[in-house]
Amino acid sequence: MLEQEFPGASGAISPIRGGRQAAEQQIRKIDGKRYARSRDHLNGAVTGLSPYIRHGVLTLAEVRDAVFQSINNRDDGSKLINELGWRDFWQRMWQELGDHIDDDQEVFKTGHSASSYSRELPDDIRDGCTGLACMDGFREELVSTGWLHNHARMWMAAWLVHWRHVHWKAGADWFLEHLLDGDPASNHLSWQWIASTFSHKPYFFNRDNLERYSGGNFCKSCSSANHCPFDASYEQLETKLFAQRVPIRDVPARRQGHRSKSTARPNPSTQRF
């Protein structure tokens, strides 16, 4: 039916089902405590509720109440409630910004001018043939399922903007073509947070970080493993990627645990797409 009605639309249907029944199956699995412990890992206990919340199949209020029911004390649910807060915050920002959500909210803090970033998404990224197993893997998941773990979204966005020097808007628009939860509020402002036009500093990562939270699965089979662009310390990457020093040591960590011993950079996975 959809093929006939929308011949111009690309790709196949997602294995993630829409509708109330699918949403209820998913919401029954909520576990605030496990979420807090494991959410930064690609195989962590994330909720997968974002497509249903985005389209109002579930309201944030319903999910909030489901979290409350799944916990025995406030500590167990604080992380997940915090993430629902992010969603509410993005929506309020969108209400305030309107169409200006498409604009850079602030200047880049990378030392590069906004005009120096490419406005086109490179073909190798769109086609998933960059030679980087992680990024091609994320692209495959994005295009085939319409969903990506938040950490994968962050890594991919950081790579596009800071390594490939693509303007965040080109990447953000591409994500919206595919993401079932695609929402300019969460999506565009998170891309801007990565890019540093909606934060005090750019977000970037290194191989150590990606390997840890992806279980090392990509690096094992990566043809670029011996010349990985992410295989460096944060200090080295900072010098390579940015035209001005980005203070990485003066920002207090917003969360504890899972921190790399090799860097003082706080674990940055606090942002939600």
Partner: peptide, 21 residues
């Protein structure tokens, strides 16, 4: 919106399934 944002069939399918309920 679908044409100008190149919305993929995955997204349309998801919306359609939500509507069916």
């Amino acid at each position: 919106w679908i044409d100008s944002k190149h919305i993929s069939r995955k997204r349309l399918g998801f919306l359609y399934e939500c509507c069916l309920d």
